[in-house]
Amino acid sequence: MKILVVDDEADVQPLFLQRFRKEIRNQEVEFDFALSGEEALKYLEDKHSEVVLILSDINMPGMSGIELLGHIREDFGDPPPPPVVMMVTAYGDDENYRQAMDKGANDFLTKPLDFDLLKQKLKNLAE
């Protein structure tokens, strides 16, 4: 299962790789990363059919996660199945949640990420 993580903080990359160390080794999941919404869209141009799940931060300089979500839903919805998108934010307020859900997010997670919960969600997704 290929997962794209979009976050402007580069250090989330080693964090995910280590947190999912076993899963990666068992080839249950595979991670790719983008540091901005723009980069994520570029990545998706080529590989949107491979990506099953997108985890995106909302607050990023330039294109925000919400905007990215809008683009994903507009541009990459056609060949089924559309990717599952989970929004991640440090501002876990109602307004952010409403916006994310309006734009078609599948889930809404707040920072700091609960990796056990995330793993559980991935397991449900894989089944």
Binding site: E9, D11, L15, R19, A90, K111, P112, L113, F115
Partner: peptide
């Protein structure tokens, strides 16, 4: 502050 603290906790 929250961002670096999250990293500290996670790492």
């Amino acid at each position: 502050i929250q961002n670096p603290l999250n990293f500290v906790n996670n790492f």
